[in-house]
Each structure stands twice: as C-alpha cells, then as structure tokens.
Simulated scan of single mutants.
Amino acid sequence: MAQLFPKKNPEAAKKLLETPDEKLTNVERDKKFALAIATTPMPCPMCFVKMSVIDAADDTLEVGGGDYNGTYVCPNCETELAKVVPFFMVPGTPGWHWQRKHPVPGKKMDNDRRNVSLQELEVLVAEHDTVTLLVTRAQRRIDLGVHIVVPEQLQLVTSVRLSAYLQAHGWTIDEAGSDDKHRTWRKSDGRVCYTHAEGDAEVMAGDVESVALSEGCSMLRVLVGLLALGPLT
C-alpha cells in the first residue's frame, strides 16, 4: 500500500477505515489499526477540547510510516502539545494522552525567582479570601442566610492555570475518569484530585480545595503556585 498522509488525502484514509479487514493484506490491516489510533480524539490538557493526532499534526504526518518530525498544536487554544504514553495502559483509551510540551512561562528575576508585582499580590490576597469564604460556605460553616458578594469569576484561579499547576507538580490526567466537563488527576503514589473544564467562582474554589487536599497543603500554597506560573492574563 502507498504512503498514507491523512491530511493530504483524507478520502484514502476514510476508505481504509471503512474497508473490512478480510479484504485487506496484513500490511494494510496494520496501517488501518494505526490510523484508527491516530483518529481517536483525546482532550487537550489546557482547553479540554478533544482532538486526534491527525487534528493536531500538520500534513507531513504519515500513518504507518516513518517518524513524525513536525509539531502537535491544539487547533482550539494553539497550545503546543506532546503525545505521551503512560507507564500503565488505561482501559478505554488509545494508550496515549496529550500533555503540554512546554511549561507555562513566567517572568524571572536574576536569582530565578518570580518577579511578582504589587497588583498580582493584591489579586492573590483577594482571591485567597474569596476561595476560603466559598469553601467555608460550601462546608456550611457559616450562616447561609448571610448575604455575601463574591465575583462570578476569579482571575488567578482558572481551569487552565490549575491544569498547568498540576502538570508541573507531577500529576497526569486519568482519562478513564474524565470527560469534557470534569477532569480526574492522579499521581504515581495513588493520590487523586478533581478539577473542572470551566466554572464560576464557586466551582473553581472547590477545585482549589480538592488540589490542596490531595497535595497535603493549604489552599494558600496552591494559590501561590498558581501565581508563580506567570503574569495574570
């Protein structure tokens, strides 16, 4: 069978997938299997939109051929991705998942510490107070009848930043327990935490609490870690 470049010749790729195995040679069946894996969508760790290897690659990707030397880029958020094969196969997945290729950049001082602005510190303090309040209210430790004004969205606590924080701390996505709205994260020692693809301040506060509990640290430490990822956007 000739070389197969799915983006250059999508009709040939479609025809191969639709051809019954009994009508294919052994080589063609192997290429069909590789194509099926390459067309299986997996979620981007940053925006959670699902895409396949073919979606993220350029038109030089050859299925069943040589090594791919191009880049994988999420077509939704334009994050450069890396295709990662886990140590243990997760049932129900194609045997790989997406991971951000490069860490989220941040401004550095000469001593390699973050140069945090006064504005960022003010946001950190304000959002720590808000997150603490929301978690306390969710745990019914305060009078729910008391009117408290909280923002609908938080600046520092976002799904993208939480994903970047968890990846930087050695967490990986458990695809078997994740979908478009919810994300399950695991560590090699068996710890688990949960985040959402998006949500209001109440939801994001719960995610911070989940991360803090799983890391065995305070919510303030998680927020400081989010601040260390880089300037607020």
Results as ranks from 00 to 15, higher is better:
223 L>N: 06
92 G>L: 03
191 R>P: 00
144 L>P: 00
224 V>E: 15
21 D>M: 09
60 T>D: 05
225 G>S: 08
207 D>R: 05
172 T>G: 11
31 K>C: 01
32 K>M: 03
130 T>P: 06
77 C>S: 10
86 P>H: 11
9 N>S: 14
132 T>H: 13
215 E>S: 09
197 A>W: 12
102 H>F: 15
45 P>D: 03
113 R>W: 11
34 A>T: 06
166 L>N: 00
68 Y>S: 05
126 A>D: 03
8 K>G: 05
20 P>I: 04
113 R>V: 12
150 V>Q: 11
164 A>R: 03
40 T>R: 06
82 A>S: 14
210 S>Y: 00
28 E>H: 03
105 P>T: 08
123 V>L: 02
41 P>A: 10
36 A>Y: 04
215 E>G: 01
66 G>T: 06
73 V>P: 00
138 A>G: 13
168 A>M: 04
209 E>A: 01
79 T>L: 03
23 K>G: 11
55 D>K: 02
136 T>Q: 15
62 E>A: 09
187 K>L: 08
211 V>N: 00
203 V>Q: 07
204 M>G: 01
37 I>Y: 03
141 R>Y: 01
107 K>T: 09
173 I>E: 13
127 E>S: 10
200 D>C: 14
219 M>V: 10
7 K>M: 05
44 C>T: 03
36 A>P: 02
63 V>Y: 09
128 H>T: 07
185 W>D: 00
149 V>N: 13
222 V>T: 03
155 Q>G: 12
42 M>L: 12
23 K>M: 14
171 W>D: 01
197 A>N: 13
31 K>F: 01
27 V>E: 14
165 Y>I: 04
140 R>D: 10
17 L>R: 11
152 E>W: 06
8 K>C: 10
89 M>E: 05
135 V>A: 14
198 E>V: 08
130 T>Y: 12
232 L>W: 01
181 K>T: 09
96 W>R: 01
18 E>C: 05
20 P>L: 08
147 H>K: 15
28 E>M: 02
119 Q>T: 10
99 Q>W: 04
101 K>L: 15
226 L>N: 08
166 L>Q: 00
46 M>F: 06
67 D>A: 13
180 D>M: 11
221 R>T: 14
109 M>D: 14
120 E>G: 11
133 L>C: 14
95 G>F: 07
31 K>L: 08
183 R>T: 15
104 V>A: 13
159 S>R: 06
159 S>C: 07
36 A>E: 15
89 M>V: 07
121 L>W: 13
56 A>K: 08
210 S>I: 01
101 K>H: 09
59 D>A: 14
36 A>M: 12
4 L>C: 10
84 V>M: 13
136 T>A: 15
102 H>S: 11
166 L>S: 03
71 T>M: 04
143 D>L: 04
30 D>C: 08
195 T>K: 11
74 C>K: 03
47 C>P: 07
200 D>M: 07
129 D>M: 15
222 V>F: 07
147 H>E: 12
145 G>A: 11
163 S>K: 04
59 D>I: 01
221 R>H: 11
111 N>C: 15
83 K>L: 15
147 H>W: 07
174 D>Y: 11
217 C>D: 05
99 Q>I: 06
193 C>P: 05
232 L>K: 04
16 L>Q: 02
216 G>C: 10
108 K>I: 08
154 L>T: 04
103 P>R: 13
